[in-house]
Computed example of a mutant assay.
Amino acid sequence: MMGSKGNVGQDQSTLFRGDDTELRLKDERSVRGTPAKAMPAFILGEELADLADSDPRIVVATADLANSSRTRDFANRHPERFIDFGIAERNMITAAAGMASCGLIPYVATFASFCAILGAEAIRTDCAYPRMKVRVVGHHSGISMGFYGTSHHSTEDLGMMRTIADLTVVCAADANQLRAILRASVEHPGAMYIRLGRGRDAPVYDDVPSDFAFGKAIRLREGTDLTIITTGSQVHASLAAADRLAEEGISVRVVDMHTIKPLDAEAVRSAARETGAILTVEEHNIIGGLGSAVAEVLVEEARIPFRRHGIMDEYSLIGPPAALYAHYRLDAEGVAAVARELLEGKA
C-alpha cells in the first residue's frame, strides 16, 4: 500500500490512472470488468471495421498484438483485409506503404515504442517521404506500460514523429475522440501517426466530436489566469486539475491540442494574449513533444510565464502505472500543483 485516500468503489479507469484513489499494486477486479467502449485502444478494431463496411480500401495490420489493440475485432468482421505480421514491426510499416501505393488505406497498429521508435526510419522513408496514406497507430504510449519497463515506454515518440516532414501527428484523449480521428483520417492526405494510451483513459468527450479537424485545437474550458495546453492521456487530468484550481479562485483555460503536427499556432497565441501564462502537460519527455512545439510558437511572441510539464529528460521509472503518474505529477493533483508553482513564479 503506497497511499490511502479511502475511495471505495472507484472504476477501473480511475484505479489505473491514479486519479483520486489510493495507489495499489494489485486490485481484486479484473480489467475485463471495464467496459470495452470506454477504452480508446479497445474500440480501434470496432471503429475501423465499421468504416471498412462501406470502404473497401481500408485494411488493418498488427505485429502480434491483435488482442492488445483489439484489432481482433476488425479481423473477426473483415478477415480477408487483416494481416498479422508477427513480431516484424518495421516490415509491417514498409509493407503498408506498398499497400498504400496500390490505393489501399492501411492502418497498422502496435505498441508506440515499437512503431514510432523502432519503426521511425520506415515511417519517414517509406510512408511520409512518398506521401503514402499509411496510418500508424501507436497504442500503449507514454508510461502506461508500467512494469514492462523502459523498452516498452515511449516518452520520445512525439518528438521523433513531429520532426518528420509531411507526417500528421495526432493524440486521442478518449474513445469518442479516437472515433472522430479515425473517421477524419480516411480522406486525409499523406501519412499519419495516431497516438493512443493503454485504453483506460477516463472519458473526456460525451459524444463523438462532429466538428473534429486535424490542426484545430479544442477549447474545453474557459479561463483567464492560465491556459493548460495538453494532449492525449493528460486531457482528463488537466480538466480535473482546473476544477481543483477553480475552487481556489484560479481561472484556468484548458485546450486539447490533439494535433501535435500541424500545431494550432493561433490557439497558442490566443492563450498567450488572453490568459498571460501557459502550462503544457503531456505524458512525454518535456523535450521534443508538445511543450517544445508550443515553445516554438511562443518564442516569437511577447514573453509570458511558461512551463513544460511532463517527464523530465530521463528514462522513466518502472512500476505500476498509477504510481508512475503520481510520481511524475501527471495526475490531477500533480498538474494542479505545477500550475500553482507557475503562477507563483516558481517555474
Results as ranks from 00 to 15, higher is better:
Ser13Cys: 09
Lys216Ile: 13
Ser316Met: 03
Leu48Gln: 07
Val136Leu: 01
Leu245Pro: 05
Arg303His: 10
Val31Pro: 03
Val169Glu: 00
Gly3Ser: 15
Ser141Tyr: 02
His327Val: 10
Thr34Met: 14
Glu28Leu: 15
Gly197Val: 06
Ala271Thr: 00
Thr62Phe: 04
Leu25Arg: 11
Glu89Thr: 10
His236Thr: 10
Ala242Ser: 15
Asp53Met: 03
Leu263Thr: 04
Asp55Pro: 08
Lys37Asn: 13
Leu343Arg: 08
Cys102Gln: 15
Asp211Arg: 04
Thr231Asp: 13
Leu167Trp: 06
Asp73Gly: 11
His153Arg: 05
Ser4Arg: 08
Ala63Ile: 07
Leu343Tyr: 04
Ala52Met: 00
Ala241Gln: 03
Pro305Phe: 09
Leu290Glu: 02
Ala184Gly: 10
Gly119Ile: 07
Val170Phe: 01
Val335Asn: 05
Leu182Ile: 12
Pro40His: 01
Arg303Ser: 14
Lys37Glu: 15
Asp126Ser: 13
Leu25Lys: 13
Ala36Pro: 07
Ala49Ile: 04
Ser69Phe: 02
Thr71Ile: 09
Arg183Gly: 09
Asp11Ser: 11
Thr71Met: 05
Met2Tyr: 15
Ala272Leu: 06
Glu314Pro: 12
Asp19Ala: 03
Ala36Asp: 14
Pro35Thr: 12
Ala172Glu: 09
Thr230Gly: 01
Glu47Asp: 12
Gly103Leu: 06
Ala242Val: 09
Val59Gln: 02
Leu25Phe: 09
Asn285His: 06
Leu324Tyr: 06
Val254Asn: 00
Arg72Tyr: 09
Cys171Arg: 03
Gly289Tyr: 08
Asp256Thr: 01
Ser30Trp: 12
His188Lys: 14
Asp126Cys: 10
Met92Asn: 02
Ala322Trp: 07
Ala339Arg: 07
Arg179Pro: 00
Val136Ala: 02
Met312Val: 15
Gly310Met: 13
Ile218His: 01
Leu167Ile: 11
Gly319Glu: 06
Arg308Trp: 04
Phe214Gly: 12
Leu342Ile: 11
Ile93Phe: 04
Ile250Gly: 00
Val59Gly: 05
